[in-house]
Amino acid sequence: MHLNDNQLLERDVSNELHLSQCKSCQLRAANVIKIRDKLNQLPSESLTSDSWEKLKYTYQLRNDEIKQAKNKKQIKIWKFSTAALAASFILAIIIPKILVTDRFSTNQYRELTLLIEQNNLLQQQLIKLKPEIATETVKFNLIRYQLSILDQDINRAHVQQLSIKEKTERWQKKQDFLKQWLINKTPMNTLHI
């Protein structure tokens, strides 16, 4: 039995034996090849010469958008975590104060609580500048990194139950860093942790 058109268009091994013996199918298979050749000789068009530039521009634009979206997400997480950290420190100072008022001077506690609140406000101010920061990813990441070191140091002071004076010193250091950045916006060179 002769091969049907579909078998001629996509031949498999089982068709080859018949094809090698049948003149009629060989002729039809040759016609398929000729028609295919014609289809393969369709005229070609070219893209405009500036198409690569357009593509490159679109690609970079999309990458920037993705990076900005990532930065926004990071800022959101940072904002939330720093606020939570500040709140937890205030609580950590107020609760022992209520419990053991007579052991420490109220003024020292008040000073430290005030310092934490100020730090929190300064950090909020810094966060408000996020559109400015977001465009300078490296700088922004460096600030975040340095702040995280300062926060770790503060955290350690509270966990190890260091003296009020030592805790105040660490909070003061963070406040100086925040103030310096907000005034000069270039504290990275001057900060020594």
Binding site: H2, D5, I35, K38, L42
Partner: peptide, 18 residues
Amino acid sequence: KSHDLFDYEWLDACVDLN
């Protein structure tokens, strides 16, 4: 199952395939 699509090379006389 058609058997007559490639009986001859009908694209030979085609003026503009596109």
